[in-house]
Write a protein that binds this DNA or RNA. Structure first.
Lengths: 212, 212
DNA sequence: GCGCCGTCCGAACGGATGTTCGCGGGAACG
DNA sequence: CGTTCCCGCGAACATCCGTTCGGACGGCGC
């Protein structure tokens, strides 16, 4: 049963508008006035209904203790992912470590938490170039990586090539003693190197494309 | 003068943490306890300082009337975009209209507002098939569309083909009296049809790829 | 009619909460 | 030393605000 009475719908709309405007929830009497209701108990009554139906969560006895929930009664949190730099030739990126993680981020990318799937210390990099275009990662995309040191074959990883002093995003394969870094672009050749020349910076989690 | 005393920094941090957890601001006495302060007047004093320095905005005489301001206090809002269905052969999707918008959504996709760039009534569809793979839209992706009836040449639009009774996502081109619906997949042929056979449902805004 | 239920009304109670005021300690300065 | 300013302390006050209670109105089924 998720049908709302007109009054409840009205209150819900007012809640959203009020929070949008003030950044804090209304008091019961704010709702009363805003919806033209003659008694606070009516507001209380309908707020209980809204809570039963999963649209809000209330902290009783606490003024303005109303929390708006999203669809299905869940709450979507936002994670601010530090944008540490660009993956581009000749420019090594700083290695995030847990102690001084994100200390020198240029910027932060706010994303819903499902983009990082509960992983911690995720960081972001802006992609330059089309070497991963067939993996649907375009120039200008922002990729999210988790800081790991090891990866499985076929993983998309950001690796630091020591001899070149640069970082690239490639798929990694171990082949009898050497490393193959495979771009997802049939026009480009794989890079072959040795294990001691590569340092894995992070494993690809997901990507977004900034809207044009 | 934007230097903060330790106490003020502490209160600011507490404010952020409290709002993150509860979705509504703390009362003065919440701050008092949370920061180990012995008097509410100290909290009031420092809140005034924080307001002078531009970190918060207060609505006087109103409980929990504290609003975080500033670059680091900015609030990234979440938009719940209704997922109206799947773009797949043989399955027409409901046409969203402003009056009964999203009334029958299967689900809602929470995204940061930058994904819809301030547009209203945006809806989402799950993509089936790889017909737009060269536009970096994969099978399983979720695309966001704004409900428009008209589009420019080259726009990626969801169109309803009346004779087939199905909806697809294609690039649209008008060519001397007829319509060309161009997939972004070189292995697939364009669809040619007439203007009275197509009904534009929405224009592509952005897409996300649910994390694996 | 009668009872039940969802909804609304008005008033009152008591706790929660923002505000104010007097006081004091400590640092900086003349 | 005296003054001023920043900051903290404790208590009291007035209001804000969630809660509760008795009552009422209308629709519905029996």
């Amino acid at each position: 049963m998720t049908t709302l009475s007109p009054r409840q719908q009205q209150i819900l709309d007012f809640l959203r508008a009020f929070i949008e405007e003030h950044d804090y929830p209304p008091s019961i009497r704010d709702i009363q006035e805003g919806c033209g209701i003659s008694s606070t108990s009516v507001v209380d009554y309908n707020l209980r209904k809204l809570e039963e139906k999963g649209f809000i969560r209330r902290d009783r006895e606490i003024s303005r203790g109303i929390e708006l929930l999203g669809a299905r009664g869940r709450r979507t949190r936002i994670v601010e992912v530090p944008l540490l730099g660009t993956i581009a030739a000749g420019q090594p990126i700083p290695v995030p470590s847990s102690d001084r993680w994100a200390a020198d981020a240029e910027d932060y990318v706010p994303v819903t938490e499902e983009m990082v799937r509960g992983r911690t210390n995720v960081f972001a990099l802006k992609v330059r170039g089309k070497s991963m275009i067939e993996d649907l990662i375009d120039d200008g995309d922002i990729v999210f990586l988790e800081p790991v040191r090891h990866a499985d074959d076929g993983d998309r990883v950001a690796v630091w090539l020591k001899d070149r002093g640069e970082v690239t995003l490639k798929r990694i394969y171990r082949e009898n003693g050497r490393i193959r870094l495979q771009p997802a672009n049939s026009a480009m050749e794989p890079i072959y190197t040795t294990p001691d020349n590569v340092e894995i910076q992070g494993r690809f989690i997901s990507s977004i494309r900034p809207s044009e």
